[in-house]
Design a protein around this nucleic acid. Structure first.
Lengths: 212, 212
DNA sequence: CCATTGATGGACGATATAGTCCACTAATGG
DNA sequence: CCATTAGTGGACTATATCGTCCATCAATGG
């Protein structure tokens, strides 16, 4: 594939070959995993370098500084989470669809006994008050996440599964908050059941709006 | 008051005078505030030193290292949060008492437009996967917090306000998760209303168990 | 096969931060 | 008033970590 030499973008990315792009992906993947497991602040660039089998110059060739790497990881994780969630939520047409969404999250959380929490929630908690750009990027991700939930709830309402007088926006907020809070409790006590209980309470509330 | 020279404790604290204890309090208060606002990892000992108007030697006279300071702050914040929550929850004898608990939290969150989140939740998210001792200390705090909620719900049940077949433990988990998740969403989007919505959904669920 | 450009490796420098040390001051008991 | 102990101030060291730089290697087009 021929290169295009597009230098028009405000933050022009230098021309890259296939090999260079793969290196970039490797760095991003490693950074995302380390940020998730150790936290952003506790991850050094040398950790990233080692985990991705690259060198210092490669890191700085692809990302001007650590902050830029963080922003890039936020984008990657946002897309990853939203893609996963869209996959689960787009097809929800009844209440058991929502329960399956819950089951998937709980099961995934059980795999590591609650540890690490939510990739977006953890970064938000750590970065929101220190880096405005990170905060807004994560805020956008959370808004999209909530939108997926609101759309699912609206769909259920329009299908007649839920009563017509519900407020999908508020219920979506509650659902997402229950999930995030569940992540925190489960992570802290190494007990995924707490996340299950939190989600169940929110889902029970939604069930109570079901048309019989 | 005469000194006692008690050197029996495993981690013997050196004898202290009133002045020394005040310095220690000043360090702890400053550290707690900075950890809360900037995060633990982003707060340097020099920040603490400056904020508390002390010197390096005083920091290390009272705390062997930064980790010890973190643990001490966790204790302080745990006691502070639990005292506050106990004050609000111990006297709850009807559903509007729970609503007042909610109102206090939401209002306090509005004061800084959602920023900073929950002192315990933020530290838990940042430290749980990196420092086992911090994790267990915070886990104990969360358990006690939840216990206050469970006790209030049990009281409402025993008073006949709530139906006798409710599960106070699960509802308490849901309530605490809604609060923690609400903190995260509110912090991230600078919008305390998200916390209000999250708490309301949990409270509405509890309302639905009220004896008419 | 050579020239040019991108990719790589790692040494190196600058700085921030945790932690040490010691001289000095304040307080207290005899 | 002296001696002893607690408390204080801040210079200093060691090290971790961000970020720079340049020499070398790989790939690709002519």
């Amino acid at each position: 594939m021929p290169d295009h030499d597009k230098l028009n973008a405000p933050e022009a990315t230098a021309a890259r070959t296939e090999r260079g792009l793969q290196t970039r992906e490797r760095i991003l993947d490693s950074a995302a995993r380390l940020f998730y497991i150790k936290g952003v602040g506790s991850t050094t660039l040398d950790d990233v370098r080692a985990a991705s089998s690259t060198s210092k110059s490669q890191l700085y060739d692809h990302f001007p500084d650590k902050t830029a790497l963080i922003h890039a990881v936020i984008d990657v994780q946002s897309q990853s989470v939203l893609a996963r969630e869209a996959g689960h939520l787009k097809g929800v047409r009844n209440l058991s669809g929502l329960r399956r969404w819950r089951d998937a999250l709980v099961q995934s959380n059980m795999l590591h006994d609650g540890s690490y929490g939510c990739a977006l929630g953890a970064m938000s908690s750590e970065l929101s008050d220190n880096d405005e750009r990170s905060r807004t990027a994560l805020a956008a991700a959370f808004e999209n996440w909530q939108r997926l939930l609101v759309e699912a709830l609206t769909r259920l309402r329009d299908l007649g599964v839920l009563r017509s007088d519900i407020d999908p926006r508020k219920l979506g907020t509650g659902l997402l908050a229950a999930l995030q809070g569940g992540y925190i409790l489960a992570q802290n006590r190494h007990n995924p059941e707490l996340m299950a209980d939190a989600l169940d309470m929110a889902l029970d509330r939604i069930d109570s709006f079901a048309n019989r």
